[in-house]
Design a protein around this nucleic acid. Structure first.
Lengths: 274, 274
DNA sequence: AGATATTTGTTCGTATGTATT
DNA sequence: TAATACATACGAACAAATATC
């Protein structure tokens, strides 16, 4: 399929550029020597962007890479594994199989990013400081831009919590569904960065241990209030009133934050058992 | 060092739950079967959080893992490589070496996240929509909270662009230094999520190809204006005037956006060559 | 449906490199 | 310097998955 030819250009292999540093390069940051595996992974990645491979395009097979880089199978596989872990490729077995360029999914990106916050857990206040700023913009960006299918999807999600929960389990499920409502909005956002960040803040919230506890607490008023916010929000979005949608969302965020923080305070005071 | 004992608890290995599926398990979400390598990587990760390993703690060595998981060296190494790629571990050779739990660095996290936006490049407008919201909050969060060393660091960075550039190369360097100023602020932010997102938006901007071009264009007025914004900002921060710092930063962002977009428009119109 | 070819996935044995003592 | 302990790399074989005939 003519993917391999370009590798031969210049020197004996794409890795040479990464391994053998050009003469005049003074490494300000020492950048400790790359392991062979990592150098190969880097080289393959560079090769992908250089040749402008698109999602779905196939990489050379393991055997070809072994020859290209004069490395063993294990080394090549480790390099490919690194790329796969980053969500850059996916590989299939069988005839015509191999490694294919992939588009890093939002879910995977959030998983990878979540590791950063594992040892730096933000507080509820931290997260809502951001949500209060961004979710209103998100809402505004959608005003008058959603189709019938989008509204149907949103309303279907709302149906999961338009009634009082029967069990504690359902209580929890309803909270997740409410977050899912916001996640759908974020997916539809025309600004990819804004959409991603909102979705990530939602999962960050969902994964805070304190929140898992809070979400088990019955709170009929909040459910009612949230529902009414969202109904008003959908009306504003349909009518294309961006300002109003933004304002509604802001109120919604403030109310949610107030509630979450009061719960957190109660936990801390020991009024509710962990 | 007693890190290993816990592994023996229960059954013969942590992966058993993932690999050998219990009889009655009906997988609601199909969740295509994990490859052995991925199952082991997951198991090791779970084991780390379960035992609350901290950065610097050592994992069992390869040989031990081979026995634990009854897998070959290559498979174990691929699993460890996956964790290393995610920034969760680092490994060292030599006696006393092995894999050590690491704290995912902000830089690495941003690299991983950047892949998500490779095929979904936000526009300058998209990025500034976020910066206009967040950088002012960032500034406000620092008012009255910076030490003398912090101010020294900021002023040292400003010195890199407090004079007209001599060459095009310096022009570009000055722009990066200006972004670095914001990056320092973000690092100091008490809200880890806000700080990270601001830093990421900055690198996203830096890496937009269009920006690399824009940053080469001489623009003495913008440099002066930016400098004056930052001087006023530092004054407000020192005095602990959060509101004022926020307002200054907002103006700064708006001015920067206006400039960047006008440059972008000129590129598009072909007035400036790419 | 079944046989076969192709390609990744996994294992084993061994050798090399590197840091500690 | 030498011995030791560990990761890193190599190569050949085998197993499993999947497309094609």
């Amino acid at each position: 399929m003519g993917l391999q030819e370009e590798q031969a250009e210049g020197s004996q292999g794409p890795v040479s550029g990464a391994a053998a540093r050009p003469a005049g390069e003074a490494p300000a940051a020492p950048a400790r020597r790359l392991k062979r595996t990592d150098a190969i992974a880097e080289a393959i990645k560079d090769w992908i962007v250089l040749n402008q491979l698109q999602p779905g395009d196939r990489l050379p097979q393991e055997k070809a890479l072994i020859e290209q880089f004069k490395a063993s199978k294990g080394t090549i596989r480790e390099a490919l594994k690194a790329l796969e872990t980053q969500g850059l490729i996916r590989s299939r077995t069988g005839p015509g199989g191999g490694a294919f360029v992939a588009e890093l999914s939002g879910e995977r990106a959030m998983e990878l990013l979540a590791n950063y916050f594992f040892f730096r857990q933000p507080s509820i206040r931290d997260i809502y400081a951001l949500r209060k700023r961004l979710e209103p913009d998100l809402a505004a960006s959608l005003a008058g831009r959603l189709g019938a299918a989008d509204f149907r999807r949103l309303e279907e999600t709302m149906r999961l919590y338009d009634h009082p929960p029967a069990t504690t389990g359902e209580e929890y499920e309803q909270r997740l569904a409410e977050l899912e409502f916001h996640s759908i909005l974020a997916e539809l956002c025309p600004n990819p960065a804004l959409g991603f960040i909102c979705r990530f803040l939602q999962t960050l919230l969902r994964n805070l241990t304190i929140c898992r506890r809070i979400y088990d607490i019955p709170n009929p008023e909040l459910r009612d209030a949230g529902l009414s916010y969202q109904i008003r929000l959908l009306r504003a979005l349909k009518a294309g009133r961006a300002e109003e949608a933004s304002a509604i969302m802001y109120e919604h965020m403030c109310a949610a934050e107030r509630y979450m923080e009061s719960c957190e305070a109660e936990f801390r005071a020991g009024f509710l058992k962990l």
